[in-house]
């Protein structure tokens, strides 16, 4: 019989879901915006790659479930924010593929501009919702002091947009857009989003640590001086500031490297946020009690096997 008294928390798969879904959805939303601006501004790959990203996110979400075969039930409670998110992820993935299909004449609807713009509009709407959704989901958790409050919403939205635009740059490197007019402005925009994110992250941790509740201060302390501090520094410097400079200031070859770093930084940021949620609103004495429970590898348990 398994003996396991670890605290139950969300794991790395949810962080990966947030990353792939956020990046993919923002890429789909940006492809939608570019469709309105002029034809051929984004790589034909973007819509499909973004949709695949959202799909991978959804798959990881299902695998994270304790009962994956019952995953369809997640769509059944319209009052729950998880249900809202699940529906929007599904719509965004589907719309991304449909938007990408307009670039290929083999599809009969490929030349219907009004239909393309309608799909693009829906891509923007659903994509932005999915991009911001993890922040909203986490911000509602009163039980998790590091997440609670509106601060995570812009951070997740910015990160999704930055990684989504970075994906545009990577897709453009693999299969260039017919019209390259907006590639450089897109790179500058990505850089600004990355740098703004870094500033806001420092401010977020500072505010939590200096003016938060007792529980918030304890949670933020892990980011400032505790076990999460090295990773925090890594995603700030290596996942936001450095890629921001590379993407914004350098030649196309280095831009690709910057875009890849931005994706790595976005993934690490989400993993760290999930780990930051391990701090609950613990009651006095509760952590001591839980720390004394066996987790399965103690000598007295092994001796009985």
């Amino acid at each position: 019989m398994a003996v396991k008294h670890h605290d139950d928390n969300w794991g790395w798969m949810l962080a990966a879901d947030f990353f792939f879904a956020g990046m993919g959805a923002a890429a789909v939303a940006a492809a939608g915006v570019l469709t309105f601006a002029a034809p051929g501004l984004s790589s034909p790959l973007v819509g499909a790659v973004g949709a695949v990203g959202v799909g991978i996110g959804a798959l990881l979400l299902i695998l994270e479930l304790g009962k994956p075969l019952r995953a369809w039930r997640v769509f059944t409670n319209p009052k729950a924010i998880l249900t809202f998110g699940a529906w929007n992820m599904t719509l965004t993935a589907g719309l991304g593929f449909v938007l990408a299909s307009f670039a290929f004449p083999i599809f009969p609807w490929a030349g219907v501009a009004i239909l393309e713009k309608l799909v693009a509009g829906l891509c923007v709407l659903c994509g932005l919702i999915v991009a911001a959704y993890p922040g909203v989901l986490l911000a509602r958790h009163k039980a998790r002091p590091f997440w609670h409050g509106p601060g995570l919403i812009p951070l997740f939205l910015l990160s999704s947009l930055a990684t989504g635009l970075a994906l545009h740059l990577l897709c453009n490197a693999a299969l260039p857009a017919p019209n390259q007019a907006l590639v450089q402005p897109l790179a500058v925009g990505t850089a600004l989003l990355l740098l703004l994110q870094a500033v806001l992250w420092v401010a977020y941790v500072y505010v939590k640590r200096s003016t938060g509740t007792e529980h918030e201060v304890a949670a933020a302390e892990r980011w400032a001086k505790g076990d999460l501090a090295p990773g925090f520094g890594l995603f700030l410097a290596g996942g936001m500031v450095l890629p921001g400079l590379l993407v914004g200031l350098s030649a196309p070859a280095l831009q690709v490297g910057g875009a890849l770093l931005a994706l790595g930084g976005g993934a690490l940021m989400r993993l760290w946020v999930i780990k930051g949620g391990e701090n609950r609103t613990f009651l006095p004495g509760e952590q001591l009690f839980r720390s004394r429970l066996p987790i399965g590898d103690e000598a007295f348990i092994r001796a009985g096997k």
């Binding site: 928390n9 969300w10 304790g66 009962k67 019952r70 995953a71 958790h141 009163k142 039980a143």
Partner: peptide, 9 residues
């Protein structure tokens, strides 16, 4: 479905 949303909240 074991999504842990209730546990986290």
């Amino acid at each position: 479905v074991g999504c842990k949303a209730c546990i986290m909240s």
